[in-house]
Every structure is written in structure tokens, then in C-alpha cells.
Amino acid sequence: MIPRTLHVIWVGDESKRPDNCIATWREHNPDWTVRVWGNEDLASYGWVNAAHMRDMSRRELNGVADLMRWEILYHEGGFVVDADSICKRPLEPWLFEGEACACWENELIRPGLIAAGYVASKPENPFFGQIILDLQKEPTVVDRMAWQSVGPLFLTEQVRLQRYSGLTIWPSHFFIPRHFTGHEYTGGGPVFAAQEWGSTLGKYDELHKRKVA
């Protein structure tokens, strides 16, 4: 089973951590454990890909979070959500009936691309174990943008490369109803969260100050 643990990763300037956003996950999901991973965890956890994390930290902190995400999912299991996401309603048990889950980034704007910001798994899932090993073999992960080398594109390529059939892929509107391009879902289906695109749209200087609930 997928553990009822919500993981949020925030590395870098802790004064800008969007605790207001993180609080919405606690408020709507009191039966889940919320664990926030920060700079101390980055320094002490014993990451397999610590060298890649150090290199990535000099370029894109969101890439460091992606590298941490895969190892957290493998060792801990649970549901990793982006720090700049705002929970809108309680998570439903049926979302997590499989062994691993994720959602499309946007079926119309980027068809076929799996988002990295909302990924769940049971512990010790061999799929994520292989992801960690494949990253370890890479001579560098900073030769491209992080979304390509360790994030959504990398995840999408790994699903196809490993022919992984255990991944339930939710519709994008469940967690990303508004794409960074402005395209917005207007249907009547469930929306569990909103994505603020903090890194992509440069919102982190002000996001932590906003009223989001």
C-alpha cells in the first residue's frame, strides 16, 4: 500500500518556504502525516545521488527537489507534492489504490508529459529504485534543464524505457488545473489542488506572504 504520508521538499532559503501552502495539505488531510524535507535532510540523509544534488544546487534548486523526490519515494513511500501547491479538498482513498501514481502535466498543452510534482508510490518500488540507479550512472545531470534531466521529461522517459505498467496516471486537472501557460480547466471534475508554478513563474519571493486558503 501507499503510506498515508505527504512529503514536501524545500531546500534553499527557508525564510521563503511557503508554509501557507503546506498548511493547506495538513488542514484538508488530518489523517495524513505531513513531512517537510529541508536543508538539514539534504545534508544528512545519505542520498545515493548526493553528488548530482550538489551539482544541481548550483543551478536549479527545483532539480535538487526532483532528485530527492525519487529517493524519498523509494525509501519512504507516500505522496510527494510540490511545495508551491495548494490543497483544495481532502484526498480520496481511491486515488491511491495502485502501487504508484502521478498526473499528466497538461493533456492539451504538453500531451504525454507526466508531471513530477505529484507522485505517489509504495516503498521499495523497483521502478523508482531503477530511476535512482540510472541517475547514478549519469556523468552529469546539469547538461540540460532540470525538468529534462531529472524532472518531468526524465520521469516520462523512464516510464517508457522501463515499460512500467504499474503507474496510475491521473488527469492533470486533479492537481494542476491551471497550466503555467494560462490554460485552465473549466470542467466539473474534482480538483484536489492548485499549482502555483513557483520556480517556472518566479513566484517564490512573494508566495509565502500570500493568503492562499
Rank of each mutant, 00 (worst) to 15 (best):
N20Q: 11
V80L: 15
T140G: 09
W197A: 12
A120C: 13
P111E: 03
Y204T: 13
V142L: 06
A65V: 11
R26W: 03
H52R: 10
I86Q: 04
D82F: 01
Q158Y: 05
N125D: 11
V64Q: 11
I86E: 01
V119R: 01
W37Y: 11
D205Y: 05
G77C: 07
M53K: 08
S121Q: 02
W25L: 11
W197S: 11
M1F: 07
E105M: 08
S85M: 12
K16Y: 03
E76A: 07
L91N: 04
I131D: 07
G77R: 02
V119S: 02
G38W: 05
I22Q: 13
A50T: 14
W37C: 03
K209S: 09
C103Q: 05
H52P: 00
I72V: 14
L167W: 14
M145I: 06
S121C: 04
M145F: 10
W147S: 10
A102K: 01
V8T: 15
T181V: 01
V159W: 00
L61F: 01
F128P: 03
V48R: 15
P152C: 02
Q195W: 06
V80K: 13
F79P: 02
K122S: 10
Y74D: 05
S121F: 04
E105I: 15
R210C: 07
I132M: 08
I2G: 03
P3C: 09
K203W: 12
Q158N: 04
Q136E: 15
A116N: 11
D31Q: 13
W197G: 07
A100M: 15
P30S: 01
G117L: 02
V48I: 12
L167I: 14
W37M: 01
Y204N: 10
R110N: 04
G188S: 14
P3L: 09
I72L: 10
R17N: 06
S44F: 00
L91C: 06
Q136L: 04
Q136P: 07
I169A: 11
H183I: 13
R69P: 00
R110E: 14
F127W: 07
P126R: 07
V142E: 10
C87M: 12
R69W: 07
A115Q: 02
